[in-house]
Lab assay of single mutants.
Amino acid sequence: MAAGGDHGSPDSYRSPLASRYASPEMCFVFSDRYKFRTWRQLWLWLAEAEQTLGLPITDEQIQEMKSNLENIDFKMAAEEEKRLRHDVMAHVHTFGHCCPKAAGIIHLGATSCYVGDNTDLIILRNALDLLLPKLARVISRLADFAKERASLPTLGFTHFQPAQLTTVGKRCCLWIQDLCMDLQNLKRVRDDLRFRGVKGTTGTQASFLQLFEGDDHKVEQLDKMVTEKAGFKRAFIITGQTYTRKVDIEVLSVLASLGASVHKICTDIRLLANLKEMEEPFEKQQIGSSAMPYKRNPMRSERCCSLARHLMTLVMDPLQTASVQWFERTLDDSANRRICLAEAFLTADTILNTLQNISEGLVVYPKVIERRIRQELPFMATENIIMAMVKAGGSRQDCHEKIRVLSQQAASVVKQEGGDNDLIERIQVDAYFSPIHSQLDHLLDPSSFTGRASQQVQRFLEEEVYPLLKPYESVMKVKAELCL
Rank of each mutant, 00 (worst) to 15 (best):
N71M: 06
A206P: 14
A163I: 11
S261W: 01
M316K: 09
L42G: 04
L132D: 15
S261F: 08
V364C: 03
Q428T: 10
L46M: 10
S454A: 08
Q408I: 02
Q409R: 03
K233P: 15
R337G: 09
M299L: 03
Y114V: 03
A431S: 02
G259E: 11
E70D: 15
T166D: 01
E464Q: 14
A342V: 05
L346D: 14
H437E: 06
E213A: 13
R372L: 14
Y365N: 15
V457G: 14
F160Y: 02
H97L: 04
K82F: 09
L352V: 12
L484H: 08
T354R: 07
E277Q: 04
A411G: 14
K224A: 05
K276N: 04
A256I: 13
T242D: 00
D248W: 14
C180Y: 14
I123E: 01
A143S: 10
Y432K: 14
Q320Y: 07
L179G: 02
I176R: 04
P378S: 12
R338G: 08
L211R: 06
C266D: 01
H159K: 10
E277K: 02
G5Q: 14
L468G: 13
C99R: 01
F36D: 13
K264G: 11
G54A: 06
S289P: 06
Y432T: 14
R337F: 07
S15L: 08
K101W: 06
I176S: 06
F95C: 03
V254W: 15
H91R: 08
F232E: 02
S289Y: 02
N185P: 03
G5W: 11
G104T: 05
L44E: 12
Y365C: 10
L142S: 01
E481Y: 15
S257I: 08
V324I: 13
G200S: 09
D32W: 07
H442S: 05
I287H: 06
L46S: 07
P133F: 03
F74P: 02
N421A: 04
I105N: 09
S301F: 10
T158M: 01
A47H: 07
K101N: 02
D59R: 08
E302T: 03
P153V: 02
I176W: 03
N357C: 06
V414L: 07
V457A: 05
C98H: 08
A146L: 00
S253E: 10
E383K: 01
Q41M: 09
G54E: 03
M387T: 15
